[in-house]
Simulated scan of single mutants.
Amino acid sequence: MSRLELRHVRKAFDELDVLADISLSVGAGEFVSILGPSGAGKSTLFQLLTGAEHGGGEMLFDGAPLDDHGRHFAFMPQRDALMPWRRIIDNTTLGLEVQGTRRKVARARVAPLFAEFGLAGFERHFPAQLSGGMRQRAALLRTVVQERDMLLLDEPFGALDALTRAAMQRWLEQMWRHHRWTALLITHDVREAVFLSDRIYVLSARPARVLREIRVPLPRPRDPTGAAARQAGALEAEILDILLNPQPSKGHDHD
C-alpha cells in the first residue's frame, strides 16, 4: 500500500487554476520526483501537503485521509533557510526544538549525525562560514532528524552552482540508499529527476495535470558514466519530448 496517495487534487487561487488534476502515489522507502516546467504549481502541491493551503480532491496517508499534516512530513525548502545568528548545531536542532524537544536533548540527537553529513568540526560555525553545499547538508540534517514519515524536498539544490549541485545530487543518492527515506522531490531539472528517482511524475504547464508516470530502471548505486549514462540520457530525452510535446497519458513504465 502507498504511504502517500493523491487522487484528482486541484487548486485555484481566485480565477487562476494552478492544479487541474493531480493523482500520484509514493510507496514506503521510495524516491519519487514531481517534474515540470517553472510555474506549473509544483510548490503549490507541497503547500497542500503541509496544510499551508487547501484544495479539492483526496489526499491519503497510509490509506487514511490526510488531516494531521505536520505529523507526517519533514519539509526542506528551496533555500537552506538557516538562521544567520544561530550556529550550525543550533540550526540543525531547530525543527526538534519547535516540536518541544529540549535543546540539550535535541543537540544529543543531532551531534552523532554531523560526521555522516560531512559537517564534523563545523558545529560551532555560523552559516556564512559554510559553503553552499555544506549549508544544504545542514538543512537536510535539520529536516531528517525530525524522523517524520516522509521527506518533502522542494528544489533543494536549485540555488547551487552546477558543479556543487551535481556533487550534492550524488551525495543525496548515497544517503538515500543508506537510510531508505521515503522522499518526494519537486524539481524542474530533468537530469536530477532521472538520477535520483525510482519514479517520476511529469506535469504539464499550468494548470498542471499529470502527463506521464515514468519508472526509472537504472540500477543503484547510480553511475553517471558508461552504459548507465547512455541509458539515463535516452530517458532524459524522452522526458524532454513529453514536456515539449505534452499529451496526457495514464502512465508509462520505461523498460
Rank of each mutant, 00 (worst) to 15 (best):
D90L: 04
D161W: 09
Q99Y: 09
G121N: 11
L235I: 11
Q146R: 15
H178D: 13
S43F: 08
D198G: 03
L49F: 06
R206M: 05
L49S: 10
L141D: 08
E213R: 04
R142V: 08
D80P: 01
T187S: 06
S249A: 15
E97F: 10
L141C: 04
E213I: 03
L19P: 06
H72R: 01
L203Y: 06
P37V: 03
V98D: 05
L211Y: 03
T101A: 09
V145R: 12
M134A: 08
F195Q: 13
F126V: 07
R220D: 07
K11Y: 15
A227E: 09
F31D: 01
A205G: 14
P112L: 03
L6C: 10
V9R: 08
M150E: 08
P156L: 11
H72Q: 03
M1E: 09
I89F: 11
G63A: 01
D241F: 01
E192P: 02
Q47D: 10
I214H: 12
F114D: 14
F61R: 00
G55M: 00
A208M: 13
L172I: 10
R7K: 04
G158R: 03
D67W: 06
F75S: 00
S2V: 07
R87S: 14
F73P: 00
Q78G: 01
K104A: 13
A205H: 11
L119M: 12
T164M: 11
R135S: 06
V26G: 01
L244G: 03
H125A: 15
I88L: 15
G29L: 00
G63Q: 03
L140N: 04
G132S: 05
I239K: 00
Q47V: 01
H54Q: 13
Q129E: 15
T101C: 12
D189L: 04
E173Y: 04
E236T: 06
A138K: 00
L151G: 08
L140R: 04
P221V: 10
V190N: 06
G39L: 06
E53W: 03
K42S: 02
H69D: 09
A12N: 11
G63F: 02
H252D: 08
A74G: 04
M175T: 14
H178P: 04
A167G: 04
L140H: 03
V145M: 13
A128R: 14
R212Y: 13
E116D: 15
A205Y: 09
L172E: 08
G63E: 04
A115C: 05
R124C: 07
E53Q: 06
H178M: 11
S197W: 05
D149E: 14
K11V: 09
E5F: 02
R165F: 14
A74P: 00
H125S: 15
S131M: 05
P221Q: 05
T225V: 12
A111R: 14
R124G: 12
G51C: 11
L16H: 15
L185R: 04
S2E: 09
D21C: 03
W171Y: 12
E238W: 07
T225R: 15
F126I: 06
A106K: 11
L172T: 10
L96W: 13
L211N: 00
E213G: 03
V210F: 07
I22R: 01
G57T: 09
P219V: 12
M168E: 07
L211E: 07
P127C: 02
R3Y: 10
R212V: 10
R215W: 13
M1R: 12
F114A: 11
A159P: 02
Q136A: 01
E213F: 02
I34T: 07
